[in-house]
Design a protein around this nucleic acid. Structure first.
Length: 305
DNA sequence: GACAATGTTACAGT
DNA sequence: CACTGTAACATTGT
């Protein structure tokens, strides 16, 4: 699920749905990416430990930091879920299917039965007899239990500031960017240690709106350009949240519904399309930067001016 | 069959 | 030592 707006949408909706409920059981189909503290849960015992720690606890709130969903429990511990590429959290009525050894939506016509929602790897049973299910097609996601406040702090000490925080201004943004003076703006924008929450979709959109070539070196950027990127990043991330996230790929909100930001892209996966910028006659091009697909308009996002 | 996919990180190389 | 680029993780869709 990926970037800040999708994680934010999920956390916000989930908080309104499961806040105050008690976890009555947990089930999982996989071990390889399951973590308890720093330990990699590869065997049954580690999952049993996790289960013991969370079952019977009340959910105090669901929130977000960077691209993580955090579920705070009444015992002071926090369940941290990182969705990586294809994970998403779903809420509703499920039944355990013995034959398939997995969970299926109680109502087969519900959005929870969407093909992208069928890779159920983890299920929390809640005190209202509904379920919080975790679908993750590619099995990249990780689930961690942060045992106390200290481990919570340690876990995020290398993550950059939240771009939508009120006191985050362009001067702080500039200082953060300059930690990587030789980096390309596209790569640095996506670097979670510099700023939190921006990934491949939103970085392409932000640079398109800012008329900045994705390969520009940080040290070559003028203050006016940094300001422009700063303003656009905040605006576009908010826009992503307002559209309920981006479901070009498999992101679904906890109801199983799609977001809508994919219908408002100007660059991401628009290869070959005429540039939407007013008065620009360019065509969107795809290149690879740092191993990631990058989409931009070579006409109004120039490398050398 | 080849290639690409919202993310992160371990490792190799400079 | 510090920084940078690439491969790998696992699976599905086009």
């Amino acid at each position: 699920m990926p970037e800040l707006p999708e994680v934010e949408t999920t956390a916000k909706i989930l908080n309104s749905l499961i806040n105050g409920l008690v976890i009555s059981d947990v089930w999982t189909s996989y071990r390889s990416t399951f973590y308890l503290g720093k330990e990699n849960i590869k065997d049954e015992n580690y999952f049993k430990k996790f289960r013991k720690e969370v079952v019977g606890e009340k959910i105090e709130k669901v929130h977000r930091r960077a691209k993580n969903v955090l579920i705070s429990l009444s015992n002071g511990k926090t369940i941290l879920i990182h969705m990586k590429m294809t994970g998403h959290l779903l809420y509703g009525n499920y039944n355990f299917d013995k034959k398939a050894n997995s969970w299926i939506p109680a109502d087969i016509k519900s959005p929870l039965a969407d093909p992208f929602n069928r890779f159920i790897r983890l299920v929390f049973t809640l005190s209202n007899d509904k379920h919080l299910a975790f679908s993750d097609m590619r099995k990249f996601a990780t689930i961690t239990l942060l045992p106390d406040h200290k481990s919570f702090v340690t876990n995020f000490e290398n993550i950059g500031p939240e771009p939508l925080e009120k006191n985050f201004d362009w001067k702080i943004f500039k200082k953060r960017l300059l930690l990587k003076p030789n980096g390309k703006i596209k790569t640095v924008l996506m670097d979670q240690t510099i700023v939190a929450g921006i990934g491949n979709i939103y970085s392409d959109e932000v640079l398109w709106s800012s008329s900045v070539h994705p390969e520009r070196k940080i040290s070559s950027l003028k203050d006016s350009e940094i300001k422009e990127i700063f303003v656009n990043a905040r605006e576009i991330l908010k826009k992503g949240i307002n559209f309920g996230g981006d479901s070009m790929s498999d992101y679904r909100n906890p109801y199983g519904h799609r977001g809508n930001f994919q219908n408002h892209h100007n660059a991401y996966r628009k290869t070959g399309d005429r540039c939407n910028k007013r008065g620009c006659k360019g065509v969107i091009k795809r290149i690879v930067i740092g191993g990631r697909s990058t989409h931009f308009c070579p006409t109004h996002q120039k490398l050398f001016k």
